[in-house]
C-alpha cells in the first residue's frame, strides 16, 4: 500500500516572547492509505502541532508534507483553506460545535461551501448523522446533547464531506469510559468499513490500542 501522508524532515518552532521554542525537530512520518494511526506522547511533546501540520491548519518552518501527492506546505492560505474543505475531517477534544446551530446545521456547515443543492445537502447530513447514531437528535442544540453525543455530531461533521483523511486530537479526552468506547468504535468502523485514513492523538493507552500503528513523540522527536 502507498503512503497517503508523507511528512519529510519538518521543523516547527513557535515564537514566545522574544525567543524561539523548538517544537518539532526534523520529523519524518509516513501514513499508509487506510491506516489508523495513534500519536502518543507526554504533554507538550508536540502531538497537536504535528497533527495541525498534517491537517493543513498550520505550516512547517522547513520540510514538506505530501497528502495524496499535494505538498501542502507550499500552498497559500486560501489554497489551503480550500484543500482542507475537500480533504480533511476534523475531530477535536472539545467538539467545537457552533452552539447556536442544531446538530443538523452543524453537520451541514462544511457543505455550505460546496455546490450541493439543499436537497443533496440534506441527504448527506442525514446519512452522516445516521452513521453516528443520532438521526433522532438532528434538531437538538449542542447544549441539549451529552458530551459523547456532541462528539458524535462532530464526527458526523468531519465525515459529511467524505474527506481523504480524518484527524482527531484527543477525541475521547473529555469523555467518560462508556462514551469514549462508543467514539472509538465509531472511528474503527470509519476506518474498517469506510476505509478512512485516521490520525488520532491520544494520551489514553486504551484508545491507542484500537489503532493499527502507534507512534510516540517525545520532546519534538518521533521515537
Amino acid at each position: 500500500m502507498a503512503a497517503i501522508i508523507k511528512v519529510k524532515d519538518i521543523n516547527k518552532s513557535y515564537q514566545r516572547d522574544n525567543f524561539e521554542v523548538p517544537v518539532l525537530n526534523n520529523i519524518s512520518l509516513d501514513v499508509e492509505e487506510g491506516e489508523f494511526l495513534a500519536l502518543m506522547g507526554p504533554s507538550g511533546s508536540g502531538k497537536t502541532t504535528l497533527l495541525n501540520l498534517i491537517a493543513g491548519i498550520d505550516k512547517p518552518d522547513k520540510g514538506s508534507i505530501l497528502v495524496a501527492d499535494t505538498d501542502i506546505a507550499k500552498l497559500s492560505e486560501s489554497e489551503l483553506a480550500k484543500w482542507r474543505s475537500h480533504n480533511v475531517g476534523f475531530v477535536f477534544q472539545f467538539y467545537n460545535l457552533i452552539p447556536v446551530l442544531t446538530a443538523f446545521e452543524n453537520v451541514e456547515l462544511p457543505l455550505l461551501l460546496t455546490n450541493l443543492s439543499k436537497k443533496e445537502r440534506r441527504e448527506h447530513v442525514v446519512a452522516a448523522l445516521t452513521l453516528v447514531g443520532l438521526e433522532d437528535r438532528m434538531s437538538h442544540y449542542p447544549k441539549q446533547l451529552s458530551g459523547g453525543q456532541e462528539q458524535r455530531v462532530a464526527i458526523a461533521r468531519a465525515i459529511v464531506t467524505d474527506p481523504v483523511i480524518i484527524v482527531a486530537d484527543e477525541p475521547t479526552g473529555d469523555l467518560d469510559k462508556k462514551s469514549a468506547d462508543d467514539i472509538l468504535l465509531l472511528l474503527e468502523r470509519l476506518n474498517s468499513e469506510y476505509k478512512k485514513t485516521i490520525v488520532m492523538v491520544t494520551h489514553d493507552p486504551n484508545a491507542a490500542s484500537k489503532a493499527h500503528v502507534q507512534r510516540h513523540l517525545d520532546k519534538g522527536d518521533l521515537v
Binding site: I57, S78, A81, K82, R84, S85, H86, F90, N96, I98, P99, L109, P110, L113
Partner: peptide, 13 residues
Amino acid sequence: TREYAVMKTLGFS
C-alpha cells in the same frame, strides 16, 4: 474566537 477558528478550519474564507 474558537468558533471563527472552527469555521476557518472548515474552509470558510
